[in-house]
Design a protein around this nucleic acid. Structure first.
Length: 799
DNA sequence: GCTTAGGGTTTG
């Protein structure tokens, strides 16, 4: 019962005011934080009970401050009290003029009748569950009064129990008064991610607005990021408790004061009213729900606050900054002040997107899987302060990235030397340094409204134009399938044999007991594999001499190119025409070196194009990479006693797009004196190698797999016989393309992750049907048994 | 316990 009558003889002050702070009527203002406050006065006017509609009531009353201290110091000692609903009806029945009453759970509003009635400029609103009226009948103070006998007296204990903490009251932004701590509800119109201040805290800088149409800046300080508002987009609704109004440059601003708290809500009309807060003790009730819905309804009606239509990749306009809700696919450091984020949102950009070349071993996570897919993937270069934030991100995470700058034209990408030309009309995305315009990256929780929508779009992402559907299926498989579904308890094998052996399955222990040579069929799980960094497993293999070579790194290759510049003499061959390009002294060892392009003078082959082949002399490795988009075949050469010669065969002898081709030092017999390629229809890698006298090396993966079944474990090599099957069927990638194709490498990694999911128990590792070949190897006079996996390929997870 | 920041016509 919201109206409590205090029994005769009970000291009202001690019973009711125990936990509440009394505010004198003259001191009431709209900026007052009404939490835990009580106002007491004598009822000097009791208006009639007015019926609104069929069941609602309103009653107006006036109370007067009785505290002589305040009644003398101010004229505003009488204030209008508006009672609404059941409270009004009850008040009408149980309160009389002359009674003293105390009220709590009120809201202070502007009195619209102040000019007319000359009463207090504010009024008190009493409505809702938290509003309380405590009546001290004039009989309890003045025995001569006769109204008390009509009332059902309540015990003091009951009064005390029901005097629970009143609800929070909220001040409109238009009513803020400097120096006063208040609570507010508002719509966010601008926000910055929390950033480190020069002081001890992070600061969230906001602009907010409410129904009073007053826009107010707000600074939230806290050393704990968790205490900062979880704002995802403008239009979100924010509730601030215990914020103080300050004047700055003549404008009111809100700043957090001691014990502040903040809760946010989605701003969309009709969406669930779910408080976003890390606080466990946050207050939230029906009134909060109403406040949020009221603000949502108000905001949607304001033309000044257009609903934020989220920009998808498909809707991106060049040069127009935008915010993107997306999923992180992969990331790679570019240099100390720049990190690349590869993201998608399931839509296809209508502008071609810049493809950023990344060293495969620097890429973390999985990339898009085919060239056609790439227009679904935005490469976002994040700079400076955002690099730190990017470092924390995990591939697969859902993000919102604020203030992305789509820049047309192949802009310079830090630390990136290859594959940048020929993308002049492609869009590059930048997240510039600093936090102006709300620039930043935020991880969105999986259950947020925007992620629900993103997941829906990703789930129905358009099919690529490419015929290569397996790529796309893999893509969806990896990104739309929760990790839980990778477990394969009692399910069919993740690999299958393709051999024609008629053998029964043996255990690993049995296979080890039988010794070499032999072929065994086993069923086992993959416990571990090496190397974990897959680029380290990539090798070069000569089919002729059977030699295995490491793939040289870029630094080694770079030094071989520099070495080749030592002989600065000409190297004319009569079947080529040379064009000299003076290079400025950007290479300290060889100032003003000359870069020479040699083009074949004639080609008798039909359909041969002018850009089919070029020899390049005097170029650095980076420069050679840079001209690859202009020619189908780029062959770096050097001068050797006036003749054209290839570089040391440790370096790639041929560049085709991003692909680098190596030759075998032992088996090659280089001859550049004759034109070549005229008897072939296609001048591909094999034709070029043959024409140059180079024995082409093949790429292959070499891995050591630790297999396990219930009987024991066994180390088996994955190479040679099985490699083609593994690489073309199992990983569904061509080994030759693997070195240049970060996506293919990503796919290999995905496959390995499925076979050997890290962080999961062995029970969750899938079972593999394998064909093992055992053979003896002599080493330091000792014989040991080695095993290789052969005739084995993956089963398609889809079928 | 106090301070911090105080949006802005961005751009590698």
């Amino acid at each position: 019962m919201p109206v409590h009558v205090v029994k005769d003889g009970v000291n009202p002050e001690s019973q009711v005011l125990g936990r509440l702070q009394k505010i004198a009527v003259p001191l009431l203002s709209t900026s007052l934080d009404c939490t835990d406050k009580i106002v007491k006065g004598k009822v000097v006017h009791k208006g009639p009970l007015v019926t609104v509609g069929t069941e609602d009531y309103v009653l107006k009353s006036v109370i007067q401050e009785e505290d002589s201290q305040h009644s003398l110091s101010s004229e505003n000692t009488s204030i209008n009290v508006i009672l609404v609903g059941a409270l009004a009806k009850e008040f009408s029945e149980s309160v009389n003029q002359g009674d003293v009453m105390a009220v709590s759970g009120f809201r202070v509003g502007k009195s619209p009748t102040a000019l007319k009635d000359k009463l207090h400029p504010c009024n008190l609103h009493l409505a809702g569950d938290e509003a309380r009226v405590y009546v001290f009948p004039s009989s309890s103070l003045d025995p001569r009064a006769s109204v008390a006998n009509k009332r059902a007296p309540l015990s003091g204990a009951e009064v005390s129990k029901s005097a629970k903490v009143p609800k929070y009251s909220y001040v409109r932004l238009g009513d803020l008064q400097p120096g006063v701590v208040v609570n507010v509800y508002a719509v966010v119109t601008f926000f910055k991610q929390p950033f480190h201040t020069r002081g001890t805290d992070y600061c969230s800088s906001l602009k907010i607005i409410d129904q009073s149409n007053e826009k107010v800046a707000c600074s939230i300080f806290s050393s704990k990021l968790d205490s900062h508002p979880k704002i995802f987009k403008t239009g979100d609704i924010i509730r601030l408790h215990r914020v103080k109004t300050q004047l700055f440059n003549g404008s009111k601003t809100l700043v957090t004061s001691h014990g502040f708290s903040v809760v946010t809500f989605d701003g969309a009309v009709g969406s669930a009213v779910t408080p976003r807060t890390s606080s466990l003790s946050s207050h939230f009730d029906e009134d909060d729900r109403r406040a949020v819905e009221s603000l949502r309804a108000w905001a949607v009606a304001q033309l000044a606050l257009p609903a934020q239509a989220g920009v998808t990749l498909a809707a991106v306009q060049p040069k127009v900054f935008f915010d993107l809700t997306c999923q992180l696919l992969a990331k790679a450091p570019m240099d100390s002040s720049c990190t690349l984020l590869k993201v998608w949102d399931g839509t296809k950009c209508s502008h071609p997107l810049l493809n950023v070349f990344v060293e495969p071993h620097l890429l973390e996570g999985c990339s898009t899987l085919s060239k056609d897919m790439e227009n679904l993937t935005a490469n976002i270069l994040v700079y400076d302060n955002h690099v730190q934030a990017a470092r924390q991100l995990k591939p697969g995470a859902y993000l919102r990235i604020y203030n992305i700058h789509p820049v047309p034209g192949a802009s310079k990408v830090p630390g990136n030397h290859a594959g940048q030309s020929g993308q002049a009309d492609h869009l590059a995305f930048h997240l510039h340094g600093g936090n102006s315009y709300g620039r930043g990256i935020q991880v969105l929780p999986d259950d947020s409204v925007e992620i629900q929508e993103l997941k829906r779009v990703i789930g129905s992402s358009p099919e690529p134009d490419s015929n290569d559907m397996s790529d796309f299926e893999d893509f969806l498989d990896v990104w739309s399938t929760p990790p839980e579904s990778f477990d394969s308890t009692g399910e069919r094998s993740a690999t299958e044999r393709s051999c024609s052996h008629r053998l029964g399955c043996v255990t690993l222990a049995e296979a080890k007991g039988k010794g070499p040579p032999g072929v065994y069929h086993v069923k086992a799980q993959l416990k571990s594999y090496q190397p974990l960094r897959l680029f380290q497993s990539l090798k070069l293999y000569c089919h002729k001499c059977k030699t295995i070579r490491e793939v040289p790194d870029d630094v080694t290759i770079g030094s071989l190119f520099l070495e080749a510049q030592r002989d600065a003499g000409p190297c004319r061959e009569d079947w080529t025409v040379a064009t000299d390009v003076d290079r400025p002294g950007d290479c300290p060892a060889f100032p003003h070196r000359t870069l020479t392009l040699h083009l074949p003078t004639h080609s008798k082959r039909r359909g041969a194009e002018v850009n089919e082949l070029v020899f390049i002399k005097g170029a650095t490795f980076e420069e050679t990479c840079c001209i690859t988009p202009g020619f189908k075949n780029v062959i770096p050469v050097r001068s050797s006693q006036g003749s054209m010669s290839l570089l040391d065969l440790s370096a790639p002898f041929l560049f085709r797009g991003k692909r680098h081709y190596f030759g075998c030092k032992q088996c090659s017999h280089v001859d550049l004196t004759q034109p070549f390629g005229q008897n072939t229809d296609v001048l591909d890698d094999k034709a070029v190698a043959e024409g140059l006298g180079v024995q082409l090396l093949a790429y292959g993966l070499m891995m050591q797999l630790e297999l396990q079944d219930g009987t024991g474990s066994l180390e088996a090599l994955l190479w040679r016989d099985a490699s083609i099957l593994w690489q073309e069927q199992f990983f569904r990638v061509s080994p030759d393309g693997l070195a240049a194709n970060t996506e293919a490498q990503g796919r290999v990694q995905e496959t390995m992750d499925k076979l050997c999911p890290s962080g999961r128990s062995m029970a969750e590792h899938p079972w593999l049907d394998l064909c093992l070949s055992a053979y003896a190897v002599e080493e330091n006079g000792q014989t040991r048994t080695c095993y290789q996996i052969c005739h084995t390929h993956s089963t398609n997870p889809e079928s």
